[in-house]
Design a protein around this nucleic acid. Structure first.
Lengths: 208, 208
DNA sequence: CCTTGTGAAGTTCTTCACAGCT
DNA sequence: AGCTGTGAAGAACTTCACAAGG
């Protein structure tokens, strides 16, 4: 199996999401190109990396294509295989992300929410178990949490990141406006609204 | 002035944010490399695109570098030059993003919030003016809103996008889990947590 | 015919390696 | 001595263009 370039992976993930929004049986690279804005050749090359060899002449089977992408990229939404994540920082934003419906049907399970304010943690009601950040290490290890959604105050962002990293977290979705420093082994994706808007204005978004 | 490649723009934006977090006077490409994880040569090439020619021998002046990036990429936080944006969909998530402090000090101004529920719009209190989506076109045009933060329910995401596009919006920060179809002239950035986590698991995040 | 899959060409981005400045 | 800036080489990615298949 060939190594799949990271831009191709990104596009394939988007395509797999797009496929769940279609209710046709087959789809062509031309149609996918119109929906996404990417070149037809690019899309065909991406899909050919999956080595399906089943698309000739009349496009791809939507379901087969979706399944192939999911299995190749390990985004299989099976109960036992779900990746476990947590939200750190339960201010307004963190609390709104607790809404468990966001995670329904995905291959992620929101396993915990953390806040430094013990009172808040006890009073707040949620379907997701909530803990004080005192218990961060214990819970991350016992619940086998792999990914963290960081929504703490900017002032606490780096120190919390350092803790998460030392507890073995694999990736951080960063809602703070701080640029986090992490070792190469940890992935970070900045989703702070202002940062994203800034990239847009500067034309730094490559439409992937 | 040279054309700046889009990956370089993205890195420069991150660097400019990083610079505001440093309180030293000068900084070298080696230090920036350690902070970001990118190669020193890459960082030097990025910065050299700014054509400052002022960095020789002992690194860059933090303030000058920051200003140069801001002015080149048009991310100047001046009052008159602020880019205007709005939040569409005031569910829990949308409401939490109304928190105006996120936008303080940035070159964006949150000019309005919209929701289809007129009652909600009237009852909710916020420093940001709130309107019913009935007034979407009128307000987008009169307030000269350029960017939208989309936080509606998935079911309404594409139709709302079509409206925003037809009213002349330039870019959309997409919190829904729908892959939006837009013309090439409109930028979209997906920040849906599950989508971002999926890219992480698949190793599709290029650390930019 | 229309669409896929893919060598080969083209483009864009990154890294090397070192001259030149302080 | 230590760091920047940059030609030139290299790597990665995209697009072209067309053979092959239903």
């Amino acid at each position: 199996m060939k190594k799949i370039p990271s831009p191709s992976k990104k596009r394939l993930i988007t395509i797999s999401q797009l496929l769940t929004q279609q209710n046709k049986e087959r789809i062509t690279s031309i149609e996918l190109s119109a929906l996404t804005g990417w070149g037809e050749a690019t899309i065909r090359r991406d899909i050919s990396l999956l080595e399906l060899h089943s698309g000739a002449s009349n496009g791809y089977n939507v379901k087969k294509l979706h399944d192939a992408i999911c299995s190749l990229l390990q985004i299989v939404p099976t109960e036992k295989g779900k990746h476990r994540c947590c939200i750190v920082g339960l201010g307004k934003l963190g609390e709104s992300l607790l809404e468990s419906s966001f995670f329904c049907g995905s291959n992620f399970e929101l396993a915990a929410g953390f806040d430094s304010n013990m009172n808040k943690v006890e009073l707040m009601k949620s379907n997701i178990p909530l803990y004080a950040t005192l218990d961060l290490e214990k819970k991350i290890r016992s619940l086998k949490i792999e990914y963290a959604i960081l929504a703490v105050q900017d002032e606490k962002a780096q120190q919390m990141t350092d803790r998460l990293v030392s507890y073995g977290i694999k990736g951080i979705v960063n809602y703070t406006s701080i640029v986090l420093s992490v070792p190469n082994s940890v992935q970070v994706r900045n989703v702070n609204t202002v940062a994203v808007l800034t990239e847009m204005v500067a034309g730094a978004i490559s439409s992937i």
